[in-house]
Design a protein around this nucleic acid. Structure first.
Lengths: 196, 196
DNA sequence: AAAACTATATATAAGAC
DNA sequence: TGTCTTATATATAGTTT
């Protein structure tokens, strides 16, 4: 602790910062990661609360891509581009997107899986009140209906599914497809897939 | 005021809500609008603080499209979509890779340029006196750090640089192949993913 | 290089205009 | 619709583990 003036307080808490480029690279990277997660969370809440479709695309200064999307990044982005770009312009990349779409479906499932896994532990805790069955979004699964036993079984199934998914994705990758995704899991378990 | 128990308080303040679909339509619409703005603000802060590129696409349940993007929705979306499309019909991998790297460098410069130009224009506008409700948002640039003279010089430099950049890009296109500049913008930025 | 921890800054629900 | 207010919920800066 640098400041001895803080009688009785363990930290200075959140400090105000100016909205300008963060000079220190380490701080900037940490802030990038934290705030990116924060935006994903906000986006997912907007989806759930209002039934909206949202896509968030982020490129780090280093050029690494991150994204959040519901129902999928592709669907939202295409919907947007489709209405803003000449609809019958077939030179647009969308034409050759067949394999890509398949891979993206898998990736989306993978993202959902990661989210579910991340949420799974929270569900255990959440087993208190609120018997809601409004299954709007993918994360809004029927929480309360799972006993601990069922959660354990689900855990096993998820892990199995997870492995299979990776295998399929890797097969597709070897066949020439490519995609790169990162899920918002709340746990930052990043498994970006690699092209080539 | 429903609750007479609120001694001395004018409102109950922010109330906790469950993250589930808001039943009342009016509330849902208001929340949609407020939170959408909130996400834009967060996105713009991420841009400014970390130098990221961000696009946020939102569709209301009614199907109306909203978006935020920096440097532009199109550039970020194309960059993302392009990155997820597998150019599996490459000629020679190494040649292609080298060209991609070169174009990637140019694209990054170009994106930086777009950012700088966008900011420059904002500064210009602000200098010219239309200072209305621009007291918030990421475009609130550090005006005071730049004299008018410096802005003019920067303007010239930017335009020169911009022209050269386009020239180089066009050269590469002629030597390299089919894609448009826009397509290259998308394809050129997956260095972190394919380890060329 | 993540994750956890406080204390504080910020976002926003509910209401009023 | 949009803007303002208030009080509270939530996000997060700075730091430690």
């Amino acid at each position: 602790m640098f400041f001895l003036l803080m009688e009785g307080k363990q930290t200075r808490g959140r400090q105000k910062i100016a909205i300008k480029r963060i000079g220190n690279e380490d701080d900037r990277l940490i802030t990038f990661s934290k705030r990116r997660s924060g935006i994903y969370k906000k986006a997912s809440e907007l989806v759930t609360l209002c039934g909206a479709e949202v896509a968030v695309l982020v490129f780090s200064p280093a050029g690494k891509a991150f994204s959040f999307g519901h129902p999928s990044i592709e669907s939202v982005a295409n919907r947007f581009l489709g209405q803003n770009i000449a609809p019958n312009d077939n030179t647009h990349p969308l034409v050759e997107a067949h394999r890509k779409v398949r891979i993206n479906e898998l990736n989306q499932q993978h993202n959902e899986l990661l989210v579910m896994e991340a949420e799974r532990d929270r569900w255990k805790v959440l087993k208190e009140g609120t018997s809601e069955k409004s299954s709007q979004g993918w994360w809004e699964a029927p929480i309360d209906e799972f006993s601990l036993q069922e959660l354990k079984q689900m855990n096993v199934m998820l892990e199995e599914f997870h492995k299979n998914l990776h295998k399929k994705i890797n097969e597709l990758r070897r066949n020439g497809g490519a995609s790169s995704f990162q899920a918002h899991t709340g746990h930052a378990t990043n498994i970006p897939f690699c092209q080539l």
